[in-house]
Nucleic acid binder design. Sequence first.
DNA 1: TATGAAAATAGCTGAAT
DNA 2: ATTCAGCTATTTTCATA
Lengths: 167, 167
Amino acid sequence: MSTRAAPFDELDRKIVAALMENARASFNEIGATIGLSGTAVKRRVDRLCANGVITGFTATVRPSALGWRTEAFVEVYCDSAAPPRRMGEVVRNYPEIVAAMTVTGGADALLHVRAADVQHFEEVLERIRAEPFVRKTISHLVLSHLQTMGSEAGAGRPASGNAAHHR
Amino acid sequence: MSTRAAPFDELDRKIVAALMENARASFNEIGATIGLSGTAVKRRVDRLCANGVITGFTATVRPSALGWRTEAFVEVYCDSAAPPRRMGEVVRNYPEIVAAMTVTGGADALLHVRAADVQHFEEVLERIRAEPFVRKTISHLVLSHLQTMGSEAGAGRPASGNAAHHR
DNA sequence: TATGAAAATAGCTGAAT
DNA sequence: ATTCAGCTATTTTCATA
């Protein structure tokens, strides 16, 4: 857990923020903006990766450019005895399911689905509904994004943050 | 009419896939795995960025490491006359809202919310519910992720894939 | 335990082919 | 698309506080 040895200070926060804004920025460049040498920045990035704070670096892509033009969230209601673990295994077989989680509220699970178009989505949905432990589904097709920002889960700390310790 | 502008061939697909897996990979490294020179890879990446296929490069972070330990999806039901645009403006004032979209189904909008803890989430939810045009909300707290994969919205092409307009 | 400076290696990028 | 050349960045080593 996080009680030990995670001196996540202000400099780390700024480095993470810089890398979230541009993961291909050079260490020297990042260092220049936060007042550190490139060497020091690299060391801290290496440590943040080793600690699991940074889990990777990825290109963000406009899904429609790759032909994924339809997006939906699907609430899944399971048979009462269906373990979430089963869901996890099944979900792995659907390349269209980009995220899946168990949730509170009416449904047992929520699926984030991408498909080429509504026909494709309908086909995927039929396959999901045919899974043995699925009792019913409620779909929410995404019409438009109100927030296209890249600031997802921002690098700022939460308002009532019990996050960052320091020395 | 396939000669112009954005062919997006198999090599581009592989480059995008490589950058989604590791956005800090060197051009030479990517080139080596797909049989191309680093220079050629760079030119293609530049073009993919200019075309808007690639929209950026970002570090992926474990939210809990930054103190965001609670996650939820909130269905928002609006007053009948509330334009989605209003939602967009409001949403911008909540750093806790990491994504917002209009959707079909019962609700008018779906919000992806991150908070430090459930207390923080409750506070955010109360603020959202106090917005003038919000009639009711249904919250789904995320319990666990069934798919922690980094393969979100995969670089593979959809089954019936036709891709790539731009500008 | 941290940093910064220097040196060697590796990568980036433009021009020519 | 490749090769080459000049420049920049990364990464290791070493010295310092």
